[in-house]
Amino acid sequence: MAKILKREQLSELVWRFRLQAPRIAKKRKAGQFIILRPTVDGERIPLTIANGDNSQGWIEIIFQVVGKSTLMLSNLPEGGEVVDLAGPLGQPTHIENFGKALCIGGGVGIAPLYPIVKALHDAGNDVTTIIGARSSDLLLLKKEMAEVSGRLEIATDDGSAGHHGFVSDVFKKLLDDGEKYDFAIVIGPVMMMKATTGFTVTAGIKTYASLNPIMIDGTGMCGGCRVTVHGETKFACVDGPEFDAVGIDWDELAKRLNSYKSFEAKRLVGDHDCKLTGKQ
């Protein structure tokens, strides 16, 4: 059981929950995740830890409603409880003073990026952060990111904030301006990560991406989260979630994320007026 200390809606489908979790708050490091079950008989949901406070014993998660289980989670009240919470899981991000670090986040991927930006900043890096979303109301953690980034750039698909276009456009512009980076990390939707890491890798920057495949236990037991990196099968839960972006088989990851799409669609219909499919 973990008590929901604070419940906050960040955008139409995105929520931030503060959960009482003293043990996880004590041990967690940037890049790690938790698994929770919102209710008895609920699914196990893996979510990256977005923030935490050891002295007060809480962690924060930021999640987007993408299916029935995340919808159930979003409906839990402040002061209520998630029945199961386990973690911290996965390998932490390798943090050191690289010099100039580049952090790129897209959509809800901005949330797991935040603790990494903060850790890189605290380790003495000069951090440039680029965050992007479809429109300005979907841009998460703008203020928080600004506090820990030497430079913060913004891109929106519709031009409602910052650059009108993709995060990769902003990156190319920075390169053209003569900026150089020693390290990059990219988190976001699969196709955004595929495209963006393509540019950073071509520019000769050592780049990592944080992957979010389907998983159940999060401890290496099921192998459902397997991804191919440099031709080898890896388990994202224990070997990752971050991998060297050069070697990731993005198309396989994208396909595997669609494993249960028809199942999800079927069970959402009739349950509520669906904001995901647009059907009433």
Binding site: M221, C222, G223, G224, T233, E252, K255, R256
Partner: peptide
Amino acid sequence: ENSIGVYSANEYLTR
């Protein structure tokens, strides 16, 4: 082996 529908027995039985 990473095609959709290929499970480890652990995953299949755990589900």
